[in-house]
Amino acid sequence: MKSGPEAPATALLPGDGDGTSTRRPVRTGTPHLPDAASRATGGTPPAGVRAAARLRAAHNGRTTTVPLLHSDGPFHLRRLRPRGEQARVCVLGAMSAPLGGDRLALDVTAGARTRLEVTTAAATIALRGSTRDPATYDVRLTVGEDASLDWLPQPLISAAGSTLHQTYRVELAGTSRLLLREEQLLGRSAEPPGHLSTRLTVRRNGRPVLDQHTAYGAPASAWDGPAVLGGHRATGQLLLVEPGLDAPPAPVLLGDPARGQCVLAPLADSQVLLATAVAPTLARLRHLLDAALAHVPRAEAPS
């Protein structure tokens, strides 16, 4: 089990002074990308990158393959060595993204009977960019019958001045298994966060089972107050769908108000479990989410 999300962030702006990479790749290679000059002058819209990356896993009768792997814009998709029957794909950031005005989409399908894991190589950092327009990042996860998807990206960091609207749309079959982890850090060290809104909708067998919208950072109201984050800057969730679960576990409560808190409990559709956590740091957040996962009968922690 890992102790924390220690993967380096590759899209940090210069001057962060934290010793991590300051690489800021040139934003080229997508058909909709305006040239650097127009981006810099904030010229005419659309000022952002439009990119739609896709990947699809299929079962060939023997094991899981990944016949579709379409990289686009900032998303460079790469196959990793499989783990047993599980195919693995890593999303590498080919440039800093999302920036203001970017419209990014990532579509992942785990076809029937597949075993698929998708990770990202580095934290995703929402940055301000040259326009004040919001960036959008739409993740669509579709899991077929008897298929299993682990979606385990590195954290999303909302940097000062950025605005990102993120959506997760998860479509599951009745026999799908899913492990989804989503972690957010609001602001890099010693800076206020940008504005980060996330809408998560999960449907199972066509029926909605979870619909959730969070909004942090100004102009959201009282987002760091005692009803919402209580001053914590890291928040995240684990969504676990286990059709084989006989009886849902009783709610699990972890942590304390100062060092972060987590609840793991079944949704109304009791084969879907959700862990929700807030914590002062990403490391502490990961610790809480890992500990919550360890309470689930399936109980194998993601790497």
Binding site: P248, P266, A268, D269, S270, Q271
Partner: peptide, 8 residues
Amino acid sequence: MHLDHPVT
């Protein structure tokens, strides 16, 4: 399975 609706 829906456990939230108690006995009628």
